[in-house]
Design a binder for these strands. Sequence first.
DNA 1: CCAGTTGCTTGACACGGTGTCAATTGACAC
DNA 2: GTGTCAATTGACACCGTGTCAAGCAACTGG
Lengths: 195, 195
Amino acid sequence: MSSPESQTETRILEATLRLLESGGGEAVRMSDIAKAAGISRQAVYLHFPSRAALLIAATHHLDRKKDVEARLAPSRAAASGLERLEAYVGAWGTYIPEIYGMAKAFLALAPRDAAAAEAWTQRMEDMREGCEAAVRALARDDQLVEGLTEAEASDLLWTLLSVRNWELLRKERGWTQERYVEVVLESARLLLIRP
Amino acid sequence: MSSPESQTETRILEATLRLLESGGGEAVRMSDIAKAAGISRQAVYLHFPSRAALLIAATHHLDRKKDVEARLAPSRAAASGLERLEAYVGAWGTYIPEIYGMAKAFLALAPRDAAAAEAWTQRMEDMREGCEAAVRALARDDQLVEGLTEAEASDLLWTLLSVRNWELLRKERGWTQERYVEVVLESARLLLIRP
DNA sequence: CCAGTTGCTTGACACGGTGTCAATTGACAC
DNA sequence: GTGTCAATTGACACCGTGTCAAGCAACTGG
C-alpha cells in the first residue's frame, strides 16, 4: 500500500494517469496500461493485484502530484464563512477537470467492483467534509439559510459540486469551465446564504 | 422495434422490469432474465438481439405502464410559469424512484455500450425539453432570474433534477423522498425565479 | 567464478458474461 | 402427414481479468 514505490511502479502509475487523462475512462485496459508503461501485461500484476487496486494507487499518486492540500489551504484560511464557501467551491471546481479521467474510470468500475466503489465513496466522503466545514463556517457567522439543517445544507452543496454535475454541464451541455465555476458559485450562494 | 409484442416478449420485458426494480442494476444478467421469464437464455436472443436492445425495449414498456404522458399533463396545463415549474419538478421528482432500477442499469452499461449510451442520452434530452418548456414559461411571465440565459437556466434545472443527484441525496445521504422533493423544488425556485 | 535472488518475459489457461450456431423437439395448422 | 414456428439443448467464439509455471538476464555476495 505505502511501500516506497519502485521505478516500475511509478512508470505504471504514470502510464495509467496518462491514459486516463486522454479521455479513456472505461476503455483503459490492463493491457493498454502495460503497453504504455513498456512492460508486459502480467508484469503489472506483479505490482498491483487488480485493476481496482491499480486505479486506487493511481489516485494517491495523482493527489500527491496535484498537491491537494495546498489547493485547500486558502479555503481553510478564510476569515468569513462566505469566503470559505467561495474558496472551497472555486478550488474544487477547478480540481474536477484534472481528476475527471480518473473519476470516470472509477464511476464506470464501481457498479461491478466493490473495492472501487468503496474507494470512490471514501473520496466523496472526504470531499463532503470540506462542504461541511464551509457550511459550519457559514452557520457560525449566522449566515446559513433558514429551512435547511447543517447536514442538509452540506449534502446539497456536496451534490451541487458532484463530478456528475460537472460532467453534465461541461461535457453534455458544452459549458465552459469559467461559466461552470461562475454559475455553481452563484448557485451555492443562492442556496446556502441567508438572503 | 414496434411489432405487436408477443406473449413471450411481454414475459421477458416484465421479468426484466421486475429484476431491475428489485435493486439489481448491473447484476441483472441475461441468464437471470431468462430464468425469471421461465425460458432459456438463448430464447431471449430470439426476441432481442442484445442486452442493450432488451433494456431499451424495457424502458418503452415501462413508459407505457407508467403512463408518462398523463404525469406530465398537469405541468403542461399550468397557467403560470411558476406553476409549470413546480408541477414539472414534482412530477419528475416522483417519477425518478420508479425508473431508478432502469436508470441504474443504463448508467452502468453506457460506458461500454454505445447503443445504451445513445438511448439514455435521448431520454435525458427528452427530459431537458420539459425543463426548457418550464424555463420558457417563466421567461414569458418575466419571472426568470437575471444572469442566466434561457439555455443556461434549462441546463441548470436539468442538472438539478438528474437521476444522479436523486441517487446521491436519497441513496447515499439517506434523504426521504418527501424531503428530496421539497428541497429540490425550493432550490429550483431560488435558482431560477427572479427575487 | 558460481549461486542465489530479483524483476521481468512468454505462453498457457480458468472464469464470467455476451452473443452465435446447429441440431432437435413439440405443438399447431392446413 | 407435412410444414412451420417457437423454443430447447449443447457447443463454441470473443473479451477482459486474473493466475500459474517456466525461463532468462542482470546484479549481488561468498
